[in-house]
Design a protein around this nucleic acid. Structure first.
Lengths: 229, 229
DNA sequence: GAAAAGCAAGAGCACTGCTCTCGTTGTGAC
DNA sequence: GTCACAACGAGAGCAGTGCTCTTGCTTTTC
């Protein structure tokens, strides 16, 4: 009799197994995940799944959190051990793109339109900020290392809001830097959503990686990370 | 006994009425549109709706085309009669934002994750390009009027693809200009999706319009429409 | 060992998209 | 004017969905 108890361990395994099968269904059938189909695949009654997830939404939430952490991890790993912030930013961007291309439905789950009637619970906002915090840290690092071209400061009410964010989440970034990081992140997510959701259809078809690189270099220039637009 | 016939006219009216009710349902219940609920609201049997739309997907397609045209129209109207291209671009961006804020579900319908199992038919790609072609025309206009700061040319395979697009859809734009227009469009859609889909939660909450303006000015700078980043 | 809590299964409810059939009604050819 | 035909609305029905409730069984806890 181990400390956590047999039942608790089995429960954890079962929970994980449900998520795995659910992810598989998500990858093939898209976002309209069927709890009954997942239960069928597991050889159990659909009602039994409700012992592990109170509702379909709760299962989706678990998958969303996992997805945020997955892409966050991949991004952080790609940014590590790079010579400078520009290389880290571009490597990170390509890593996120690879992750998204590898499982478009998971991308849609976290960065696409919210599932109807689904309200993101508090648990998700932590993992959700990993990528954007990573970008912010790169911007801040470039700034403190003197590798960031000066950009005019920002003013207005949104600048004050961003000052609060800078105070809370960074170790000395200005509102301008937070704004730059947010902008870069939204440029990244826009570029990827455009590619994955078919907005690029009939324009760039072959060399989408090259076009993505071009866009991310543009975003880096806008931030001040590079001097060549 | 008008030329189109009574039946044809009633059919057209009925088709429009179904779309109106469906749009209302979309605005309140989100993307999981229920054909039966729409039929109930119209006081008719659900099977009768199938006389007008062969499937739920076909109804969604009709709504998507209408939405593309609606936002396209609003964008074009906002860009008209502006003193210069920068003003037109910013006015257009804010118009698109207003349109999206006014009916987020329609925005999600066209720029969010594709509906599961839904494959956009050929009919949609025409209306879908209205906004981006508008941006391209603004860029081209600024270029021919000498109001566009020079940006380094682009190379690579995606540049060749964009050259084909430039040849087909513009009257003399370079691949670089098409790339700029695409980038600006994706920046716009990324900024709006981020705002609407909750990516900005707990950062910019109050002055989102100001932050959006900041981002669009950034995009304009990246294009070369303005010299102040 | 008894009581309590966790668990799986099945039936059932209300809902969905979609198909088929069956009368009815407007339409064009003669 | 008549008559065949296509369009139409309604209803029943099928297979699927999320979710709840009850009924037995097993594991944990006291």
């Amino acid at each position: 009799m181990s400390a956590p108890g047999v039942r608790a361990r089995v429960r954890a395994e079962m929970t994980e197994e449900i998520k795995i099968v659910a992810r598989r269904h998500l990858a093939t059938d898209g976002a309209n995940l069927s709890l009954r189909a997942v239960a069928r695949d597991l050889g159990m009654a659909s009602s039994a799944v409700y012992r592990y997830f109170a509702s379909r939404d709760e299962l989706l939430t678990a998958l969303i959190i996992d997805a945020y952490n997955s892409v966050g991890e991949q991004a952080e790993q790609a940014a590590r051990d790079k010579t400078d912030e520009l290389a880290a930013f571009l490597g990170m961007a390509h890593a996120v793109r690879e992750w998204a291309l590898n499982d478009p439905h998971q991308w849609a789950l976290i960065y696409g339109s919210p599932v109807p009637g689904y309200q993101a619970p508090q648990d998700t906002i932590g993992p959700a900020t990993r990528v954007i915090l990573l970008i912010a840290s790169l911007v801040e690092s470039a700034y403190t290392n003197g590798r960031l071209t000066e950009r005019p400061p920002i003013t207005g009410r949104y600048a004050e809001e961003l000052a609060v964010i800078a105070e809370r989440y960074t170790t000395g970034a200005t509102p301008r830097l937070v704004a730059a990081a947010l902008s870069a992140f939204l440029h990244l997510s826009g570029a990827l959503s455009g590619e994955l959701f078919g907005q690029l259809t009939a324009s760039v078809e072959e060399d989408r990686r090259g076009f993505f690189e071009f866009q991310m270099r543009g975003a880096a220039y806008l931030i001040g990370m590079t001097d060549a637009p």
